[in-house]
């Protein structure tokens, strides 16, 4: 953290010479130390995911039946699992799965949700009424049940897990974005755009959507945290990605639970990885909301 603070104060001195985005970042870093530490953790996770090929000490799929369930040691820093696979390597590669699914699912869910929300607010009247009732229907299924049902219909596999997580998120985002968009709809410049005879599509995409960026971004980070957790839960229930793919939720399943007492390292490290990731996204998301739109309720 020290480095961040030092950088922040140095930046403050040279603020005038800094480009605008850097000034924004430095202000965020000064005002929201918690959020910044979250952001740093997220960046770190991203780096690990990208560089997994270079930094992982072993092939995450390579089994070693002579080295099953080795406790952490010099050779295997975090020990090995029930098939003699290196846990550290699987954790590093697992960040890929978590980020890939987390990012795609929350991006998909939040974006579709935002569009639906804006469209609903823009057209108002009957369209709004119908869309809102549809969203109510989707909302009234508990999140995990909805995800379970979608996986059951589509089957397992990375793509389907992404959809399963995105579907229940869509109405949640739609609802939040709609309430922000309702206010924008009433603003003079939208009236002006309409008076100028712009088409619905242009007004929605060029004028309204950019103005709901704040709630959209906030929802996105919150969803990211939830998506990582949901992916882990689905994998834990056996409905996420399949073995032998390295995924944190999968690492918590089966042998990790069975051997929780005899070989606790098999479950503790992936559990910590999930918590750290979700923690980081939540910290960041919270601070982002404080900074961008403190009144937003999610």
């Amino acid at each position: 953290m020290n480095t961040v603070e030092v950088t922040a104060s140095t930046i403050r001195q040279k603020a005038n010479t800094m480009p605008r985005w850097l000034r924004v970042v430095s202000r965020f870093a000064r005002q929201k130390p918690l959020g910044t530490s979250g952001a740093v953790l997220i960046l770190l996770m991203g780096l690990v995911a990208i560089l997994a090929d270079f930094i992982a000490p072993y092939d995450p799929l390579a089994t070693r039946y002579d080295l099953m369930m080795q406790p952490p040691n010099a050779e295997f820093w975090l020990g090995t699992d029930a098939f003699g696979r290196d846990i550290l390597s699987r954790l590093l590669y697992g960040s890929r799965t978590a980020l890939l699914i987390g990012l795609s699912a929350s991006f998909l869910g939040a974006t579709i949700g935002a569009i639906i929300g804006v469209v609903s607010a823009y057209f108002a009247g009957k369209t709004d009424l119908i869309i809102q009732r549809l969203m109510d229907m989707l909302l009234s299924f508990p999140l995990i049940i909805m995800a379970l049902a979608v996986v059951a219909v589509l089957g397992t596999g990375t793509g389907n897990v992404i959809i399963a997580i995105a579907v229940p998120m869509t109405p949640r985002c739609a609802r939040v974005v709609r309430s922000s968009a309702l206010a924008i709809r009433e603003s003079p410049y939208i009236d002006a755009a309409r008076a100028l005879g712009f088409g619905h599509g242009r007004i929605i995409f060029r004028h309204m959507l950019p103005n709901v960026m704040a709630p959209y971004l906030i929802m996105l980070t919150v969803f990211l945290a939830q998506a990582i957790l949901l992916e882990a839960s689905l994998s834990f229930l056996g409905l996420g990605v399949s073995e032998p793919t390295a995924a944190w939720g999968l690492m918590l399943r089966g042998a990790a639970v069975e051997f929780a007492e005899q070989a606790p390292w098999m479950g503790i490290f992936p559990g910590l990885a999930i918590s750290a990731a979700v923690f980081a996204f939540n910290l960041f998301g919270d601070s982002l909301r404080d900074a961008l739109d403190p009144k937003l309720r999610i």
Partner: peptide
């Protein structure tokens, strides 16, 4: 390896 739920 493709893992499937009971029904499918």
């Amino acid at each position: 390896l493709k893992v499937e739920e009971t029904g499918p």
